[in-house]
Simulated assay, not measured.
Amino acid sequence: MRFSQKIGKTSFRDSIQIDSIDEKLENRLWNTILLNFFDEIGVDINHKVNRDSDIEKTLQVIWQDFFGNPVDEIPKNIQSDISARKFMGYIKEWFFRSQWYEKYDFLEFLSKLDLQYFELSFTEECNNSLKSEMSAYRLVDGDIVQITSEEEIIEIEEALVNSSIWEPVNTHLKTAITYFSNRENPDYRNSVKEAISAVESVCKIIVGNNNTTLAPALKIIEVKHKIHRALRSAFTSIYGFASDAGGIRHSLLLDDIEVSMEDAKFILVSCSAFINYLKVKIEK
């Protein structure tokens, strides 16, 4: 974990790659393209591309349909066969100077080729790379889909600002973000624990009882500040999830489910939104 993350100076927005691709993700995606697409379909820079082969047809499709280049300008050797070495050199040069969104366009294009003709593990390996490097995008059925929205990020950022008046709440929330956004070793289980602990802390502060727990505190808040019963029930259920799933608040059991990134993100966004909601309610 980097020092900036430990002291809360790296924001959630900075941790999630939305409008950019950093060098580490760029390199990882290139390796995935090379190893899990071109190597898998049999492209070898040390050998010629046989005419009328599936490899030749695939390279021609990429050259014409993705890059929009003239077919008679495709890189060839002295025997007039497609040169795999020159072709891959062209793609690599383009990839590393292309814009971040153009790289995603290329992933989409290759994923659709894979799904239609090859059925490799390319899409799965791309998503593993995207997930590991905290990209806000995934490949779903050949399309790039954003899985972290601007609205979700704003909700978390507002919660950090709103909770700054309550040190325990703010600490739990920052810790939840740190666990979630650690690219080297994300800890989704403890991110969920810290996020729900942030909600529990703010509820304890609102009711003025540090010895209570979330469920009874929410019942008091429901009556005193007129929050809807369904909201109280929803967060009581989330507390139950945090107590049961994956051994989050207790030791792990054999039949516990693994807490995924999607689980942790949902809890983090939901808890942030609820903290923002409670602050508005108690100020009325």
Rank of each mutant, 00 (worst) to 15 (best):
L139I: 12
I238S: 07
R28A: 15
F38Q: 08
K174E: 02
E184R: 10
G208H: 08
L130H: 06
S272E: 08
E108M: 03
F95Q: 00
F95R: 00
L29V: 07
P75W: 05
N170I: 09
E152G: 13
K174D: 04
Q79L: 14
L35Y: 09
I206Q: 09
D143S: 12
Y90W: 10
G246R: 00
I74L: 08
I227K: 05
E56A: 10
S111C: 06
E258W: 00
I248W: 00
I16D: 04
F274L: 05
E133I: 04
L252S: 13
I221G: 10
I78S: 11
S237M: 11
M261T: 01
I18V: 13
V202K: 10
E124C: 03
E23M: 07
K9D: 09
L139E: 10
Y117I: 10
E40A: 11
K281D: 06
A215Y: 05
A198L: 06
I144P: 02
I206C: 06
D114C: 14
I33N: 11
K284P: 02
F38M: 11
E124Q: 14
P75H: 03
N36S: 11
R183V: 11
S233P: 01
K265W: 11
Y90P: 00
P168C: 14
E155L: 05
E150L: 01
N185Y: 12
R28C: 08
L253S: 07
E258V: 01
F266H: 00
K86G: 10
S20G: 06
T32V: 13
D19W: 04
C126R: 03
K281I: 04
Y239P: 00
Y188P: 01
Q5K: 07
V169A: 11
L254G: 12
E184N: 13
T213A: 08
T148I: 13
L115M: 15
N50I: 09
W63S: 03
Q60P: 00
S11C: 12
K193M: 05
N69M: 07
Y188H: 03
K9F: 12
E56P: 01
E155C: 09
K57P: 00
V161Q: 02
D19H: 08
S111H: 01
A230L: 14
S111A: 15
T32P: 01
I154P: 01
N190D: 11
T123Q: 15
N209W: 08
D114H: 14
I41M: 14
